[in-house]
Nucleic acid binder design. Structure first.
Lengths: 149, 149
DNA sequence: GATAAATTGCAATTGACTTGCAAAAAAATA
DNA sequence: TATTTTTTTGCAAGTCAATTGCAATTTATC
């Protein structure tokens, strides 16, 4: 089953299939979180998800456990956009190479936009198109060092 | 006065001058933090600094306040290397353009190395030279959006 | 439908980071 | 140098994201 990270509505049935395919119980909360992530135009934080589901309908700890499990299973990506918390988005499940994209966040209002291209030189034009100024970027690498592999 | 971000020992006097130049009180703690950052081969976290200075010799809140002030004055750079805390390094005080570099962090042992070049295509070679594998990179942008400027 | 396994809510806990306040140290002024 | 003003410090308490133990509930398995 193919899913896209943002702004792609998946049905409740598709969400449940995604859970089954990954050996995860098909519960109300997990389905809801998948639907929310698929509908959102930007990656969501745990507390945003919590607010959307409704504090009466679930506990924040259940959301954290779900997000952790999704991340372990490779269903979602955990993003740090320079805020002091993480955001989560669905991975494209048919994209073996994990063609992740990037985001621009306004340091003033916090608005987040998704970038469609991933060539650094191309970014500049895109930023002016988007109306963004005073760009700063954050680029870091992780890997497995020689001692550990 | 010229300082380099990592692995450059500055003297106590140089550290104190750096403080004065930036209108910051020349206290023992602030001088110590500058010296530690200049000596370290990798960016340091607040708690690493706290351990090195010695918990009996200062309070962690003073370290946080100092790091915050250094950051405000542009003396240091605040880095998020995909951990759940920040690391700090000295900026090169004579580098007007803030030619920041990047880092590789081993997802296994946490070891951090500094990259000397900043051309994305050049990174691949460097990683094999460093013996790093299974690279992942984290690239995000922030800026000021049209609504806010 | 009964049993085993996983998930949930609740409450308590950790760890990064912040803040108010009074005492101590540094800077400014005479 | 002595005195006043300003800044910094330690301590304690607090915030907020994220984690964990446990008993009750739900889902999966047979």
């Amino acid at each position: 089953m193919k899913t896209k990270c943002c702004d792609t509505h998946i049905s409740e049935e598709e969400a449940q299939n995604l859970l089954s395919e990954n050996g995860i119980s098909r519960t109300k909360i997990k389905t809801s979180i998948l639907l929310l992530l698929s509908k959102s135009k930007k990656p969501l934080s745990a507390s945003e998800i919590y607010q959307k589901i409704g504090p009466k309908n679930c506990d924040i700890s259940s959301i954290w456990r779900t997000l952790k499990k999704f991340h372990e299973k490779g269903i979602t990506r955990e993003l740090n956009l320079g805020e002091d918390f993480f955001r989560y988005e669905l991975k494209d499940s048919h994209d073996e190479q994990d063609h992740h994209h990037h985001h621009v966040r306004c340091r003033d209002c916090g608005d987040i936009k998704q970038l469609e291209e991933c060539d650094l030189s191309a970014f500049d034009k895109m930023f002016s198109k988007l109306g963004f100024k005073k760009m700063e970027h954050y680029l870091e690498f992780t890997g497995i060092c020689s001692k550990c592999s």
